[in-house]
């Protein structure tokens, strides 16, 4: 079901409430890592969920940022999802649109159908400037077998232009790795143990090594993102970037983790959203 997620600067908890079919509201419940009611609400008799929390890298001093998360439409599972997305798009209840594409399923029919829906909507509005396309799972490309992020982004751009989008902004991202790195950084800051098993930590460590080994190659794909301003000198962000974080059986400096985090593209997305909000 659709989720409305509101960024409230400085809010320490993340809280949620569900709106029932008959209009009843559940009341705010604090979400925790151990116990989340969201999956119950998603399968129950509710029409929407509201969430409030602080997106730490988005500043609301001009306007408050709100994400309207639509259920992923997929013909084979639930036709209603497509109708809901269509309804949200046609009701004009948004100022900006973030479209997530999947590197591993590029060009599939479900994606094409949804892109067509968005392209038709923008054709009516005539405004192509307030949309960003994320190419998620860009780290699924095998760089050692000459699969190139920049080439893939170029291919996605051409595809989008063919679909009717004028000069699309495309950001290659690694959502999963970004989340894991941010959880590691938060654990380091709070001086608590990493909330991952040793097997998962070893996998994360391996992925960090991989993205750092190819940081220039990934950086090339991010270079043309407007207002991303990618640089690999994160030392100004933290006082002691030489500090070590142990992930699995590897020691990384804080600087290496922040470098890897920049390569995930999520900071570029945040800057892009922030710039759009400020304009």
């Amino acid at each position: 079901i659709p989720m409305k997620i509101t960024d409230i600067d400085g809010l320490e908890e993340i809280r949620a409430q569900a709106i029932h079919l008959d209009g009843r509201v559940s009341g705010w419940v604090s979400l925790s890592d151990e116990d989340s009611c969201l999956s119950d609400w998603n399968t129950g008799t509710y029409t929407s969920i509201e969430i409030q929390g602080d997106f730490p890298n988005i500043d609301n001093h001009v306007k408050r940022m709100v994400f309207l998360d639509t259920p992923g439409p997929n013909n084979s599972t639930n036709m209603l999802h497509g109708e809901l997305t269509h309804k949200i798009l046609s009701e004009n209840g948004f100022t900006f649109l973030m479209f997530v594409l999947n590197t591993t399923q590029f060009g599939v029919e479900d994606e094409r159908r949804l892109l067509r829906m968005v392209a038709d909507k923008l054709k009516i509005d005539g405004d192509h400037s307030s949309i960003v396309f994320l190419v998620n799972k860009i780290d699924a490309l095998d760089l050692e077998r000459d699969e190139c992020p920049k080439t893939h982004v170029g291919r996605v751009k051409s595809y989008l232009v063919e679909m009717g989008f004028k000069t699309p902004i495309v950001i290659p991202v690694m959502g999963k790795l970004s989340l894991e790195l941010r959880v590691c950084l938060a654990a380091h800051k709070a001086q608590i143990a990493l909330p991952f098993s040793s097997r998962v930590q070893c996998r994360i460590a391996h992925e960090i090594d991989y993205v750092l080994a190819f940081k220039e190659t990934y950086g090339m794909a991010l270079k043309y993102v407007p207002s991303a301003g990618i640089d690999f000198s994160p030392s100004s962000l933290h006082q002691n970037t030489a500090a070590n974080i142990r992930i699995g059986d590897r020691d990384f400096t804080l600087e290496e983790i922040i470098e890897a985090e920049i390569i995930t593209g999520i900071p570029a997305l945040e800057r892009c959203l922030q710039a759009s909000l400020a304009s």
């Binding site: 969430i51 997106f55 988005i58 639509t70 599972t77 997530v100 399923q105 959502g175």
Partner: peptide
């Protein structure tokens, strides 16, 4: 005043993970 961002994606695109990454926690 709200700046509303509609998030649109086909299934399995990882959009919830991206929102979680921006929140810094796997809560959604």
């Amino acid at each position: 005043d709200e700046f509303v961002v509609a998030v649109v994606a086909p299934m399995s695109s990882g959009k919830t993970t991206i929102l979680n990454a921006m929140l810094g926690k796997a809560l959604l």
